[in-house]
Design a protein around this nucleic acid. Structure first.
Lengths: 340, 340
DNA sequence: AGTTGGCACTCCGCGGATATGAGTGCCAAG
DNA sequence: CTTGGCACTCATATCCGCGGAGTGCCAACT
């Protein structure tokens, strides 16, 4: 039904439309691509492609533009991810090296991705739920105020200030610190919340109440999945182009970018770093983002996806380039996290 | 030269133009405002105002729109900051209370400000340079890897991972922790970098080299003014309106928002929380933001400005409302920081 | 001197008519 | 199945004429 040439025609249409942002006609196609056939033949193929719903015309007697279904087929045709040029690889390496902490890594990544793809980039922070506890610190600030610091395997640091009803002896605090650490270091965060449950009962009766309070806050901080919502965004200026269907999506998109919950739904489940997910137009789980596409993948040390990163832009985007950039950045970031 | 009525006319023009986004004519003015004079009189005043450069007409025989100079005069006329309604005050209070940490406070503030003003909001994190050290923690992660955590009076937490050439005894680390804390707790961060210089020499000769390295990184982290660049941004979706001079500024503005260095220049020096700074059009230090205005103020406990927050939008904005919102949010945030 | 009504003038924006041209679908011939 | 030819469609651009909002100026009035 769809022979090789028709697929070629579809690919040519997508490529031209992505580049020019204008409906592409049969004559322009044969001029710009070496299809080896005449415009009339291409017209026949186009009629067939339209019949199947892969392309459409904005109005009678205009050129064709790809439909979501057309983009989907096009993307599925892209079997192997185009490798980046040496220059691009070097750019990634120099851009990401020298990051001092996790925040820095994330921010650099998001800027890099935005610059490479000329689109809006999103990088989710490593989820706490899949991290393990590296260290717990209990710091006395005043006699009735403690600071609880939890450092995770992915470099994230969570902290809570705790007001105590009564003062606590330094010795007790030292014991608490030791017990907390032996109970949870190396544990996944969710598990950590359970492991500490039995900590208070090991203390003297007089201290148990206040220790229980501290432990409760620890468990809460550690289990709080609200913190999973942390993301960094970059390249919003790339949204501003002109004269496009996509313009209608800009406002809803900016709104979605500020609602981290919605945003994470857009990015989707984090997949293995070797797989790049593409959602096109209506496949994106948000009504008002009909002419928007998302290219995303998971990242994390050793193919274990800790979080997701990707780009979002108009359905009319350079899928090959975006997929390559997302893939490459995810690999590099994973690598850096494995070291740290 | 400019009598009271002319000022009234200017104010009326600004108010109408802000609301309708269309050039305002003499007839419309007397209809919508009770000026008590005829259109012809208003026309005379307008001619005078135009002569002085406060208003201009986009083309002959159209209504007038305010110039930057006109907005400036208008804003300078606003002597007292309009108090917010009770409902708004309550909204602020409920919105900001319940923040668990500094990040949370900043994020809530920026969202609140964006929502109140329907514009782009910016909140700078409390600058480290004006904070004092509350606590320093040295944590052993592996035998050759330390984590240095610095907690500041404003709730910010800076951390650095340090790779050591040789292992260090727990006892030495404990001593280091103690010496660092006694040297710097309560000190401003800049000062702290100096105070630690003499710490290494108090250690055994064998440890001095490695201690010096740690102390060096501490001093670097603490003196690093790059960290002053941290800001939160919200309400970018409010930029998307249509058909305006301001449209041309959207892309440069989004770009500026991503360049934190540029952004902080826009916000300007942090002033006392009781003063609200307004920069209008060409007064904004960025060529391409000619039709953009910034309303900003400092915030921090007890009238000591730790950082700046504000909103940025088209010169055609509700200055009174924006100033009131910025002022109110700054007060509330200052209050919260004073408690914490 | 300041204010007001009258009036001629300017120019933007809008709707309708017309021209242009890219692009299509279809058909008959190769 | 491919190709050239051809009639047809329709969005876009252009021009024209008109209406109307708004101005500037002047003479009359208070």
């Amino acid at each position: 039904m769809l022979d090789a040439r028709k697929l070629d025609v579809l690919r040519a249409i997508v490529e031209d439309y992505v580049q020019t942002r204008e409906p592409v006609g049969s004559k322009a196609l044969v001029d710009r691509h070496r299809l080896g056939v005449s415009p009339a033949t291409v017209r026949n193929d186009m009629a067939a492609l339209e019949e199947e719903g892969f392309i459409t015309q904005p109005h009678t007697s205009a050129g064709r533009i790809p439909t979501d279904k057309g983009y989907r087929l096009f993307v599925d045709q892209l079997t192997d991810i185009k490798p980046l040029s040496g220059a691009e690889k070097r750019a990634i390496a120099t851009f990401l090296q020298g990051a001092v902490d996790l925040d820095d890594v994330v921010h650099r990544s998001v800027r890099l991705l935005a610059q490479l793809t000329q689109q809006v980039a999103i990088v989710q922070y490593p989820t706490l739920s899949r991290s393990t506890v590296r260290h717990v610190e209990v710091v006395t600030m005043t006699s009735t105020r403690l600071l609880l610091v939890v450092i995770t395997s992915t470099g994230r640091v969570e902290q809570r200030v705790i007001e105590l009803p009564t003062g606590l002896d330094d010795e007790v605090i030292g014991e608490l610190r030791a017990r907390l650490n032996t109970a949870v270091v190396g544990q996944p965060l969710i598990e950590a919340a359970n492991r500490v449950a039995s900590v208070p009962e090991k203390f003297h009766l007089v201290d148990q109440a206040v220790v229980a309070q501290i432990v409760g806050i620890f468990a809460e901080a550690v289990a709080d999945n609200r913190t999973d919502e942390k993301v960094a965004i970059g390249g919003t200026a790339n949204l501003v182009r002109f004269g496009d269907d996509f313009d209608r999506s800009i406002k809803p998109l900016l709104e979605a970018l500020e609602e981290h919950v919605v945003l994470l739904k857009l990015l989707g489940e984090s997949t293995s770093p070797s797989l790049v997910t593409v959602r096109i137009g209506h496949e994106v789980p948000h009504d008002q983002l009909a002419s928007t596409s998302v290219v995303a993948t998971g990242y994390g040390p050793g193919d274990r996806a800790l979080a997701t990163l990707g780009v979002v832009g108009p359905t009319r985007m350079d899928y090959a380039g975006s997929m390559a950039a997302v893939h490459a950045v995810a690999r590099y970031v994973s690598h850096i996290l494995a070291d740290a």
